[in-house]
Write a protein that binds this DNA or RNA. Structure first.
Lengths: 254, 254
DNA sequence: GACGTAATTCTACGCTGTAGGTATTGTCAA
DNA sequence: TTGACAATACCTACAGCGTAGAATTACGTC
């Protein structure tokens, strides 16, 4: 416990895919518990009951193990949550380049959203805590490759990446926090909410009440993303009208 | 406790500014504890130690009171956090209209950011949980008034509002979560981080390493906001070149 | 069999949110 | 003045939490 790291013989970053016997010839001193099993079970538990309901004791019970046994595979509860977040990120597979950087941006954003919608209760772990792992770097690499191919200089590419990422975090946080939905549209008292907004005493809120009462998350996602893509496109070629053809400096790299 | 609401004789939304004796002639059955005192103390406590360090017992101790006494003024701990979030929102004063909707959007966003930077540890309460209070409606009203004056139809105004808000949530969450900063720039191992990124094995990460290693939050904030403003402007007048003059249908309402 | 070692379990501590009960206090009706 | 009533506060207690530290178990190697 003094040195929570380095109980693993392979200190390379990242996580081994399977098995990973902790040491060469000592596979089962106990019940075959592994870091991967712990984190995978934690993910399913978070998916079912939410982040706040996760406790080391419950996790251990599900694994058929004493709570303290977990601490031989993870440093503490925070490390479990970090591990779940990494598991989440690892499930994202960045799509390949299409030649149109706008399409590539859309596809990468969609992949991110897909993962969040797939694990709505685990998503806040990734969206709200800053991760220390290298797992996030893969996504960063994909995004920067797209922006580089589009012709952005490195500084602007980083700014663009951070802008889009901030938007993604915000929208997805809203989407996964808005409880269970049906066909992307919030149910339950929609008409009542519209009436409340109309009577709120705020004139512009009343003016937009029909559209404020509901929130179709995919539509909002696409709207904001298209705003950012359009603005980036405009920034790339400030003089030209936006045409569906390739941008000016495309295919500069690859 | 069965009916946690309506212990207040004035069920109008919002919170009375001061005093607010719960009933006409029964001001002090005990130590003069009030909901406002509880929430204000909770805010200062959160500002000092963070959200996770807040407990009902510590809060009560600071107030010189037993923990259970708090439950006569708030329903439970979650209500305390909601109240702190409302206090946070109430501190935002939306700037008045300037006649240029782009300036108004910038000013409103800046006011939001100002509040977040002022209370970095309380900000996640507002950014991550969806609020049920009417307090947030004031900000919504301001934003919609700006977008309405700019000439957006209601549906598009809501989309625009949600896009900008999502971006704000994302950036500010990043800014307040990135620990203490000095002059907006992260200190501590900056050179080391740049070296790590260069050696990460990801070519584009290495390409942009100098700009990835640091994060000047205000610059990122302005960059993304300008992207969105430019895109909205383009959307308002798709045919015209963006001119510094007023937009097309300005001064339609006030 | 003996030993070293890693994995696991057991025990315990201080902390949490809050349900339930009781005591104190201020206001009003009689 | 007195009794009823409601609001406020405190006390006790419970189930649960993360995890430090000691004890136990099970294995591979002599």
């Amino acid at each position: 416990m003094k040195r929570p790291d380095m109980s693993d013989p392979a200190p390379r970053a990242g996580l081994a895919p399977t098995g990973a016997t902790p040491r060469r010839g000592r596979p089962r001193g106990g019940s075959g518990l592994t870091r991967e099993k712990v984190l995978q079970t934690a993910l399913t538990l978070v998916d079912r009951d939410g982040t706040e309901a996760l406790s080391m004791r419950k996790l251990a019970t599900v694994l058929g193990v004493d709570a303290m046994s977990l601490y031989h595979h993870v440093a503490n509860k925070d490390a479990v949550l970090d591990g779940v977040a990494e598991l989440f990120l690892a499930a994202i597979e960045p799509p390949g380049p299409t030649g149109d950087w706008r399409e590539d941006v859309r596809a990468l954003a969609a992949a991110f959203r897909h993962a969040a919608v797939q694990h709505p209760r685990a998503a806040p772990l990734v969206l709200t805590r800053q991760l220390k792992s290298n797992q996030g770097l893969a996504g960063t690499e994909s995004a920067l490759a797209i922006l580089h191919a589009a012709g952005f200089p490195p500084e602007e590419a980083v700014h663009a990446l951070r802008s889009v990422l901030a938007f993604l975090v915000g929208t997805l946080l809203r989407e996964v926090s808005s409880g269970p939905t049906f066909s992307g549209q919030n149910l339950g008292g929609l008409a009542g909410r519209r009436a409340d907004l109309k009577d709120s005493g705020f004139p512009h809120v009343a003016w937009a009440a029909p559209h404020l009462a509901a929130c179709h998350h995919l539509t909002e996602f696409n709207f904001g993303l298209e705003l950012l893509v359009a603005a980036l496109e405009q920034r790339l070629s400030p003089r030209r009208a936006p045409s569906p053809r390739a941008g000016p400096r495309t295919r500069k790299a690859r």
